[in-house]
């Protein structure tokens, strides 16, 4: 065992190094707090200036209402309960579309990634469809499915599908052949090879796809709701425009920003949990 002392010393060195990293991380967290403060100085200043200028009447209220007016609008909506319905409806649409698009992407992406024949059959067509701007589908979907929920959810699903699909395929195709060989050496059959080697190896790429898919989902829900809806944050945008109340429009924009960021943050958390083995963690 004495022979291994050098190695063990070097292992101690490694753990020391990781400990060092932890300390540094704590430090960067502190400076992270500083960064947050530094980064929020300008927005806060702008909001204050905006408020003052609005009160002074520099900005006409029918074009750019004061921040307090906007907050008041949100508060009123929260009080009479309409806010929660709007948020709920929009969030439901995004997640239904996100789930649908992701499921289809997983199924097609796995096929195309695993089987050369499937790639030759499906991929050219999918790539061709990808070059169509997704919003161009809107009239067709409305024509087929009416103005109700199905057309909106399909719309969002189409938007979510492509980034998730592309990342799954490239993730599966990019799995290190050397690791697959190790799996084969242990006599794994195809199913186990997929479950124990290929899936975990392509997980990082899949999660990147999910995050960009979710981002597109939020983009497409606005488009879908602008086309015609009686509820939802996108509907508030139209309502604000039609009733000449910019405070509703801005309130809706702010709500979109908050919920979108929250949902991305949840996914980022999942990513951090599942990919803790990775050398370079998420850069966001």
């Amino acid at each position: 065992m004495a022979k291994h002392e050098g190695e063990i010393a070097s292992s101690a060195l490694v753990t020391n190094r990781t400990r060092g990293k932890k300390i540094r991380q704590v430090k960067t967290d502190f400076s992270g707090g500083k960064v947050i403060i530094l980064g929020s100085v300008l927005p806060i200043l702008l909001v204050i200036v905006w408020e003052i200028l609005s009160r002074m009447g520099v900005f006409p209220a029918y074009q750019l209402p004061a921040p307090t007016t906007i907050i008041e609008t949100i508060r009123e909506m929260a009080q009479d309960g309409t806010l929660w319905t709007h948020i709920g409806v929009t969030t439901f649409r995004v997640f239904a579309g996100f789930a649908l698009g992701t499921i289809v992407a997983i199924i097609l992406g796995s096929f195309v990634g695993f089987y050369k024949k499937a790639e030759q059959i499906f991929d050219p067509m999918i790539q061709a469809f990808r070059s169509i701007p997704s919003l161009a589908w809107v009239p067709l979907f409305i024509l087929w499915m009416g103005i109700g929920e199905p057309s909106k959810i399909t719309m969002i699903a189409v938007g979510v599908f492509f980034p998730v699909y592309l990342n799954i395929v490239s993730g599966i195709m990019g799995v290190d052949r050397k690791l697959i060989e190790v799996g084969k050496m242990y006599g794994l059959n195809t199913f186990h090879l997929i479950r124990k080697v290929i899936l975990p190896a392509s997980l990082p790429s899949f999660l990147v796809g999910l995050r960009s898919g979710l981002g597109l989902g939020w983009m497409f829900v606005v488009a879908a709701e602008l086309m015609g809806a009686s509820q939802g944050l996108g509907y508030l945008l139209v309502l604000g425009q039609n009733t000449l109340s910019p405070e509703i429009i801005i309130a809706s924009i702010i709500l979109f920003a908050i919920i979108g960021k929250l949902s991305d943050w949840v996914l980022k958390l999942v990513e951090k949990r599942t990919l803790q083995w990775q050398d370079s963690l998420i850069k966001s």
Binding site: E181, V197, P200, W277, Q278
Partner: peptide
């Protein structure tokens, strides 16, 4: 075919990074 009575050690360690 691959037999379970043989073991293989490669030039690189080829450990699974997620385990």
């Amino acid at each position: 075919e691959i037999r379970d009575t043989t073991g293989f050690i490669f030039q690189e360690s080829r450990l699974f990074p997620w385990l």
